[in-house]
Design a protein around this nucleic acid. Structure first.
Lengths: 347, 347
DNA sequence: CTGAAAGCGCTTACAG
DNA sequence: CTGAAAGCGCTTACAG
């Protein structure tokens, strides 16, 4: 990569200013000059340095993305949609896979700052003081995929309502003992909100919440299996359905239930959350709350780019800062109506 | 981010040279000076620009990664391992999700070049002239996860042998009619090599290869379903097992088989490839060829960093340029021995 | 339409 | 141990 703009200028017999102009297609240059420059670029196989350009322009066209776990199909799908949308707009992605580590989040937020990224997407929803401090202080436009209670620009579904809807559906299907495999309570959206929705739905429908059939996990498949195993051995037979805060955990739970020689939905109904591919892979198919992944990715980048433009050239037209997208309950074969079985719940 | 090294120097009452020195911990500075500088950095909340540093040092600590499909669990796992290994060594990842698009590969290779990444990881295995041209010309250290027949540094398993082993196993289990759901023949490793291994194993064991029970796909779950559907409707009953070139396709095929009211492995045995999580999720569990994903990620970065060092400070100790890692056949419940059923194949 | 020159924010010989 | 100055490879007022 030894060749730089100066070399092109020399070979083309023009100034570096002119080379820069044909590169950036901004101001008009004569056709003759343009041709000379293009020929020299071709001849030298010149590749302009985005590093130098970024330094000068004070703009990197880089977006830093912090994602808790790329190996989650749901998160990978969002990342994929973010990548596609950002790519179309000429932005590149700096990606950090965090694996539930708040220390690493802080580290990467600082790296992103040092790299002078134009914007940040934060899909991580656990907080600590350092993260909170960074988020309140930073000048970098950012969008979070979580309700962190900090009035930050957000693209998300209504996790509370979604948890409420999932639980209500099970109740309508006649279930009165609904176990929950919830997320991490330090995770303010997918963890806490979905759980709160579950609690509220139970209370609103007159069910007593029984903590002995509630577990807390980390959204992973293996965890769903492990927690379901606990539920079956410690609280076996005392519930007719289970609501998991992620499809991966739901599928882990299904595997465990089946390994215990129990039937889904005959013995236990299972409700998932996310609407990721795996929900359609397992048998019976998983009833789940579907999040609009493609929309989430697109809207996240749209909002972020708006914020970036706004910070570059402030105008009175403030971009919307909160986007709540609609979720959807997809009923498949993993849940069944047991109203008839346990008596006339709904008359 | 208005604050720059000059400001720190002014506030600390020292030269920018000294500030740079405490930042980079290279040459020794007096404790007194260091303290003044650190205090000023703290006070101003200074974040040194990696962009400026990269320009000056001619090193970005950036690695560009081109991955065909992040939503594939197998690929995401490798990416995750790459990210972890690279992060530990102080490198950040520029990620491009390509979705089987050779045009996009060329585009991103050039972006990576313009961004002056220190190295490139290419997980994409389809070629075209532009890609080939780039790969032969570039000075950027790179590692490919495919045998592209170009003598490039490579970390990979022996796909030919793995395809051979998978097929031989089925043959040993008594199968004589083995369908294949292969990859893309433009994909030189996972596509072509695994298929060639299948062909060779059939021939070596005296089986005739029947093209009517062979299909070609793109490794995705939905494609496995679709192609299995073709096989069942067009060549139904004429084979006792199927070998798929990816676990995702194998699972799609399993779903299709089960949706046709057929049993696995009772009616049809299924063999996968990759050893990704989904193989243990489905019932029966999928027999598959397991790739050593974590090792692949680690070795890829190790090799790449060696090449980067080598190109920065050439020495006579050339790093090894080809790493072939061992695969492993994991036998689970999706294949069964049918020697007894169709007669004494092995006496 | 074109070019000379300053400057983006750092690092690093060089000199003291 | 410390600092003044050149320079990394670009862009962009400014002047012509």
């Amino acid at each position: 990569m030894g060749v730089k703009i100066k070399d092109v200028a020399r070979v083309a017999g023009v100034s570096v200013t002119s080379v820069s102009r044909v590169l950036n297609k901004g101001e008009h240059v004569s056709e003759k000059l343009e041709k000379k420059v293009l020929r020299a670029i071709e001849e030298l196989n010149y590749s302009p340095s985005l590093i130098a350009k970024s330094l000068k322009r004070n703009k990197t066209n880089l977006i830093g993305v912090i994602i808790p776990d790329i190996t989650s199909h749901f998160q990978a799908t969002i990342l994929s949609s973010i990548e596609e949308t950002a790519g179309k707009k000429g932005y590149n992605l700096l990606v950090s896979n965090i694996v539930e580590d708040t220390e690493k989040v802080v580290k990467y937020l600082n790296v992103f700052q040092d790299m002078r990224v134009d914007g940040i997407v934060l899909m991580h929803a656990k907080m600590n003081d350092d993260i909170r401090h960074f988020l309140t202080k930073t000048q970098i436009p950012l969008v979070v995929h979580a309700d962190l209670g900090m009035n930050l620009p957000t693209v998300i579904i209504d996790d509370y309502k979604a948890g409420y809807d999932a639980t209500s559906y099970l109740i309508q299907e006649g279930h009165q003992r609904i176990a929950m495999i919830a997320g991490d309570m330090r995770d303010l959206s997918a963890g806490r909100k979905r759980y709160e929705g579950y609690l509220a739905a139970c209370k609103d429908h007159g069910l007593t919440v029984d903590e002995s059939i509630i577990r807390f996990g980390d959204y992973k498949l293996a965890t769903g299996y492990k927690l379901m195993n606990e539920l079956l051995t410690e609280a076996g037979g005392s519930f007719t359905s289970v609501f998991a805060a992620s499809d991966d955990m739901a599928v882990g739970a299904m595997n465990c239930i089946q390994d215990h020689q129990l039937h889904i939905p005959g013995d236990i109904s299972v409700m998932g959350f996310d609407g990721s591919q795996i929900a359609d892979v397992v048998r019976p198919r998983l009833t789940t709350i579907k999040q609009p992944v493609d929309q989430i990715g697109q809207m996240t980048i749209d909002l972020l780019l708006n914020l970036i433009e706004q910070s570059a050239a402030p105008s009175s037209l403030q971009p919307m800062r909160k986007v709540i997208l609609a979720h959807e309950l997809i009923a498949k074969g993993s849940c069944r109506n047991i109203s008839g079985k346990i008596g006339p719940l709904i008359q």
